[in-house]
Design a protein around this nucleic acid. Structure first.
Lengths: 148, 148
DNA sequence: CTGAATGCAAAAAATTTGCAGTCTG
DNA sequence: CAGACTGCAAATTTTTTGCATTCAG
């Protein structure tokens, strides 16, 4: 875990960005809440607990920076807020999401699943794929159970 | 085309919503710009050309209504705006998008492509899929050509 | 030291809401 | 005619920006 943050620091460094305490705390918060899909506001509040002087604008600027470096991905589930999701280390592709329309939960799928589909798209549409976003909306296994 | 609008009217009707001229003009604009991915503001400006008294709030309310009736889908490509995309008639699934990171163009894929993937997800994750969103980011065939 | 980074407050952008008046079914 | 719908303006919400000050390298 500690090594994970070191590597992220290194990435910042090698892109010649400075390593401020604000940035470090923000990254740490993201790592500690890897399962969640935090909005900028969420991140701000969590960072504020550890570093009360921080401003919301700094959090936005840090998240933008991390997105640019592909350390996090900015995603959007249709409510009016952008959410920020840490990329898995070494993941060649962005993971997918399962959004439950009953309870609002968001689960992640790490498996690629799209390899074949992407081959078809690249060939048939002559489109060079660099990234993808795949989200399924439906009933999660927890709500599914209750219904029966 | 005219029959298409008639059927949409019918859908509104059977959900006991009234058919106001504002709503009709809005639907018409969406039909005439089916290829595009208009933001609420875009729709507002286009409707305003035909019906200058309309207010932006009415457009938002109409789009929300159409989304609720599944006549349009609200989508989000990561810029801060929601866009509204007409569902194809009789489409069992929402179509996919190809967003070009060079020129910003958005093309559509009508083919399903996800049938196999969805079977896997439903089985392995015990998740009942109701809808999906799939977007590929990459280089479109037009930009692709220029690069070589 | 020096430009990059921060915090604050103000601005901008997108969307929603309240309400009095209007119109559809 | 009654309740649904509208336009307008004001309010909210989310995100961005300007700028004087601070700080990391």
């Amino acid at each position: 875990m500690e090594s994970r943050i070191e590597r992220i620091k290194e990435q910042l460094h090698s892109a010649s960005y400075k390593l401020t305490p604000q940035r470090e705390v923000t990254v740490r918060v993201l790592l500690e809440n890897e399962e969640d899909h935090l909005s900028a506001e969420d991140v701000y509040l969590l960072v504020k607990e550890k570093y009360p002087e921080i401003g919301l604008a700094t959090v936005y600027r840090t998240l933008e920076l991390l997105t640019e470096l592909k350390i996090v991905d900015k995603i959007n589930f249709g409510d009016g807020v952008s959410r920020y999701d840490l990329r898995r280390e070494g993941a060649t592709h962005f993971h997918h999401h399962l959004v439950c329309i009953e309870c609002g939960s968001v689960d992640e799928i790490q498996e690629d699943l799209l390899e074949d589909v992407e081959k078809i798209v690249e060939r048939d549409f002559n489109f060079k794929i660099k990234d993808h976003r795949l989200t399924f909306h439906g009933i999660c296994h927890r709500c599914h159970k209750e219904e029966s």
